[in-house]
């Protein structure tokens, strides 16, 4: 690999040095001020009163229970949306049917709904005055202002992630390999397990990483349905808000720094998977490398 881009090697596609310096300077300053500084400030604010204070803040019992709830919500939402993503992309890419484009648009829908509205809809359906509210009350089941509501809102906002990654990937890979497997006598599960899954595993992982990051970090939707009951219906992002509103800034940033670390881990994992995906699609045959 050369150290310059192919554009830099041709006079027709490179700008005068001054313009190039100006573009780099403008774009990187913008990046620094608007993206990098907020990230750095999370960590400096968190460690502002020293390491001991930091560890005390993140080991506080309410923070621990918030972590457990966040992990629980993600542990339910991610696998459910993973199964859905695989089923949806199998139906959409391996078969032809009327209304396919509409279905793809509907799958994307949760991305264009405001998080606040995502929370609101579950209050309307399951809240005390909602459609099924009285039935749930009679049976002593609480959905809203309780854990199930948080899980439902999390599933909604992370709904499209896996399907969105898989549909274009499986579309691009075509049906030939699965057809060959079927002709050779493989049944449905064998075809999926030995042919499709190895081909889509990196795309699948990519979707899961993004889905998980959003599941653990969702704020608006979860805020609407949670009721903010300390130690019971608080996720980590909601705990950040509570601490911040109590003017306990250092603790708020300490807990926030855990989420920022998670975000950085997500970006690293994402870059690695992107690199693998690129390698795989550049390989001469997708089958050779995987069996």
């Amino acid at each position: 690999m050369s150290l310059t881009t192919r554009f830099e090697r041709s006079a027709a596609t490179s700008e005068p040095a001054l313009i190039k310096a100006l573009i780099l300077c403008l774009s990187l300053s913008f990046f620094g001020v608007f993206l990098l500084l907020p990230l750095l400030s999370v960590f400096t604010e968190a460690l502002h009163k020293g390491v001991i204070y930091y560890f005390n803040a993140i080991t506080e019992p309410d923070t621990w229970s918030a972590m457990q709830l966040t992990l629980l919500a993600a542990a339910i939402a991610v696998p459910l949306n993973l199964i859905f993503g695989v089923a949806a992309s199998w139906a959409i890419t391996k078969f032809d049917f009327v209304g396919k484009h509409l279905l793809i648009t509907l799958i994307d829908l949760p991305f264009s709904v405001s998080p606040v509205i995502a929370g609101l809809i579950f209050v309307l359906v399951f809240g005390a005055q909602g459609w099924f509210g009285s039935w749930f009350l009679d049976n002593d089941l609480q959905i809203i202002f309780a854990v199930p509501g948080i899980v439902l809102a999390t599933i909604f906002v992370t709904f499209p992630f896996v399907a969105r990654e898989l549909i274009p990937l499986m579309e691009a890979q075509g049906r030939e390999e699965e057809e060959a497997a079927a002709v050779l006598g493989a049944n449905g599960w064998q075809t999926f397990w030995y042919v499709t899954l190895p081909n889509i595993k990196w795309g699948l992982l990519y979707g899961v990483i993004l889905c998980n990051a959003r599941a653990m970090g969702e704020f608006g939707a979860v805020s609407v349905v949670s009721g903010h009951i300390r130690g019971y219906t608080n996720t980590i992002p909601l705990q950040v808000e509570i601490l911040y509103n109590e003017y306990n800034y250092v603790a708020a940033f300490a807990v926030a720094s855990l989420l920022a670390l998670l975000a950085l881990l997500t970006l690293i994992a994402k870059s690695y998977v992107e690199w693998r995906l690129k390698k795989e699609t550049n390989a001469p045959s997708a089958i050779e490398g995987t069996i």
């Binding site: 993206l35 907020p38 990230l39 400030s41 999370v42 604010e45 998080p115 993004l210 990051a213 653990m216 970090g217 969702e218 704020f219 608006g220 980590i236 992002p237 909601l238 950040v240 808000e241 911040y244 708020a252 940033f253 926030a256 989420l259 920022a260 998670l262 975000a263 950085l264 997500t266 970006l267 994402k270």
Partner: peptide, 14 residues
């Protein structure tokens, strides 16, 4: 991609 990965509450307080 940081804004995609960083929870919005963290962005807000930062």
């Amino acid at each position: 991609d940081l804004p995609f990965a960083l929870p919005t509450a963290v962005t807000g307080i930062a």
